Amino acid sequence: ERKPESIFLAYCDYYATGEGVTLMVGAGNTKNAARESFLSNAPEYFHRGLIEDKLDDSPPPETRRAARLLSDAMAELIASLPRGAPQFYAKIHYNLA
């Protein structure tokens, strides 16, 4: 039986006064796949806020928050495919006004 791959996140949690919060998340089963997903989809301005982390048994709170955009079904799919092949990207904006 093949061991499921890890899930990596590349994300930016951007807070702007008067504009709300924007969370952008790239995911993959390698660090490079997650990073590529983020960099190819997020506007360049947000690249400087990139945070990279691995989803494991005890990720920090910021990573757990970013991981909420990744459904369980998508995480299982990413983990089951060949290394580096799957990529996922999602963006959510909260208007706090």
Rank of each mutant, 00 (worst) to 15 (best):
L23P: 05
K3V: 15
R64V: 10
Y11C: 11
P43Y: 09
N41T: 07
P43E: 15
H93M: 03
L50R: 10
E5H: 14
K31I: 02
R83A: 07
Y45I: 12
H47G: 15
L81Q: 14
I92Q: 00
S37Q: 15
E1Q: 02
T22G: 06
G26I: 01
L39T: 13
G84M: 02
A16H: 13
G49E: 14
R68L: 08
R64N: 07
L23F: 07
L50Q: 07
P60V: 06
R2Q: 12
N95M: 07
S58F: 13
L77R: 14
G84W: 06
A90R: 08
P86A: 04
E19P: 11
Y11W: 13
E1S: 09
T30F: 01
L77I: 10
E52M: 14
P82A: 12
S37M: 12
T63Q: 05
R65P: 00
E62C: 06
R68M: 12
A79M: 11
A42I: 15
L69S: 04
K54C: 14
E44Y: 02
R65Q: 00
V25Q: 02
Y94P: 10
D57A: 02
E44R: 10
F8L: 01
E1W: 05
F46T: 14
D13E: 08
G26L: 02
T22M: 15
D72V: 09
E76P: 11
L39V: 11
N32R: 09
E62K: 15
R65E: 04
T22V: 14
F46E: 08
D57V: 00
Y14A: 07
A33H: 08
G18L: 07
Y94Q: 15
P86Y: 01
S40E: 15
T30L: 02
F8D: 00
G18D: 11
G26M: 03
C12N: 11
V25G: 04
P59D: 13
I92L: 00
T63C: 12
F88I: 11
G20S: 02
A16N: 06
E5F: 05
K3I: 15
A67C: 07
L9W: 01
L9I: 00
L23G: 05
L81W: 09
